[in-house]
């Protein structure tokens, strides 16, 4: 069995996620390929998708233009595993507020029942690195890289909280959907990408 993992390559740091996922596959000894995807045709072939960091307004608007947003939503609803990072977390959520501007009017996938705040920790000068832990998925120590990061203030009943920082929720999971506010693709440690690859493998086998 070979896995096809896609990284949405509309805008943002797709390349870094491709590299991290390739390393994760190799370290796990799982057969698979990782591709940057833009079109509905590419997306339809995937076993799992990463929505990378970038500007959520840009990624949302542009994936609306070529209908990729629609097929991504359909595939996730049918069970395709997805990892949303920063902008990706924003796109997966149902309701988004900006820290300064309040309610935003941007295209969303509307899949995760979370209350999300954009730019929650402030502007770039306030961006930070800190040690976090995701004990429930066996990643007790992880270097969280938060870049103009969002956070989650509240979750729906079926959403599991994977990690908190400073009382703010920064990583969540609901069945096949994982969303994190920090950037695992910018560091050497690929444990979160490994966890995601294993989830893709498990859900494909079932």
């Amino acid at each position: 069995m070979s896995l096809t993992v896609g990284v949405l390559a509309i805008q943002g740091d797709a390349h870094e996620n491709i590299t991290s996922t390739q390393i994760a596959l190799k370290e796990l000894g799982i057969d698979g390929k990782v591709i940057g995807v833009k079109t509905t045709e590419d997306i339809s072939k995937l076993d799992g998708l990463i929505i990378p960091g970038g500007e959520s307004t840009t990624i949302g608007q542009l994936s609306l233009v070529n209908s990729s947003l629609k097929i991504i939503k359909e595939k996730i609803e049918r069970g395709m595993p997805v990892l949303g990072i920063c902008a990706g977390m924003i796109l997966l959520s149902k309701s988004v507020n900006d820290h300064v501007l309040g309610k935003t009017n941007q295209p969303l996938l509307n899949l995760l029942d979370i209350k999300l705040e954009r730019n929650s920790f402030g502007r770039q000068k306030e961006s930070f690195e800190a040690e976090i832990s995701m004990n429930s998925i066996n990643i007790p120590k992880f270097n969280g890289v938060f870049i103009r990061a969002p956070s989650v203030s509240d979750v729906g009943p079926d959403v599991e909280i994977l990690a908190k920082f400073n009382e703010k929720i920064i990583a969540v999971k609901k069945n096949n959907i994982i969303a994190v506010a920090f950037h695992p693709e910018l560091i050497q440690d690929v444990s979160l990408h490994k966890y995601f690859v294993n989830l893709i493998k498990k859900l494909k086998t079932n």
Partner: peptide, 23 residues
């Protein structure tokens, strides 16, 4: 607050620029 936070590292500065790619 017993937390160890770093700001202004190269990972954060260069990482920010990486988020702008293809834009």
């Amino acid at each position: 607050d017993s937390m160890n936070i770093l700001r202004g590292t190269s990972t954060l500065k260069r990482g920010f620029a990486h988020m702008l790619k293809n834009g």
